[in-house]
């Protein structure tokens, strides 16, 4: 019990004194997950839009596959990216293994199916009457598409927030491809795993508290967005 109490006290001290190691790890975590989310958003929203707005041969299979990939185990993604980037892998020559770039690639792969699937879902849930109304008011096909995406904006934002929550809390893939190198690829989740293993609970607890706060912030934002969307759809 004393260990836990002492651990929490030390953790709060680290947070309050803005410990440079702690700040460095938080900044790197936000940078890696933020860039992964940006990439997943830039690729995922157009793909989700395409799946939501167009029908093509194999459409059902594509939707089912994306929905399945939403539950990709992070360690499997880590293994896949490791094999791609390892010296003998097809992208080994790029020398990206054990770099933040490798972690960004792994997290992008994890976030992408979430963004695509939830965006598609948001777009298909827009009432088809909206497209008809847009056409009656003189919209071109492109303007109709823009209007549908605008109507789905709360759902799309929810998709992005949900993907951010997933990558921020993820440890398996970035541990494999990042290597947990201090000051270079060590992020919040991997530090928690390492420091717990070593019995250094102060830093682990401090990062755990920060991670919980971020997670709370993400969920609060998601709740607000969904509430606003529900209010407008009511």
């Amino acid at each position: 019990m004393d260990t836990i109490t002492e651990g929490f006290l030390q953790a709060f001290k680290l947070i309050l004194h803005l410990n440079p190691d702690l700040i460095g790890i938080i900044v790197l975590s936000l940078k890696v997950s933020g860039l992964a989310l940006l990439l997943a958003t830039l690729i995922g929203i157009p793909l989700g839009g395409f799946l939501g707005l167009r029908r093509f041969p194999g459409h059902g299979l594509a939707v089912s596959s994306i929905n399945t990939f939403m539950g990709l185990p992070p360690v499997v993604v880590g293994l896949f990216v490791y094999l791609l980037l390892s010296r003998r892998g097809p992208l080994g020559a790029l020398g990206l293994l054990y770099t933040p770039s490798a972690m960004i690639i792994a997290q992008t792969i994890l976030a992408l199916p979430i963004v695509i699937a939830l965006c598609r879902s948001a777009i298909v849930s827009v009432d088809p009457i909206i497209a008809q109304a847009a056409r009656t008011l003189g919209a071109t096909p492109r303007q109709v598409t823009t209007t549908i995406i605008t109507e789905a904006r709360y759902g799309i934002l929810s998709a992005v927030i949900a993907a951010f929550g997933r990558v921020m809390a993820e440890v398996g893939s970035i541990l494999i491809v990042g290597g947990n190198i201090a000051g270079y690829t060590r992020v919040m989740t991997t530090t928690i795993a390492l420091e717990t293993d070593k019995g250094n609970f102060e830093l682990a607890l401090a990062l755990g508290i920060i991670l919980l706060l971020i997670s709370f912030g993400v969920n609060a934002a998601l709740h607000l967005v969904q509430r606003k969307g529900a209010l407008h759809a009511a």
């Binding site: 909206i130 003189g138 109507e151």
Partner: peptide, 19 residues
């Protein structure tokens, strides 16, 4: 065709208001 369509307008029975 679009130029012509923009000179006329149909109001649907279900309006389809934007959010």
């Amino acid at each position: 065709d679009l130029a012509l369509r923009r000179r006329i307008t149909l109001v649907l029975p279900r309006i389809g208001l934007f959010s």
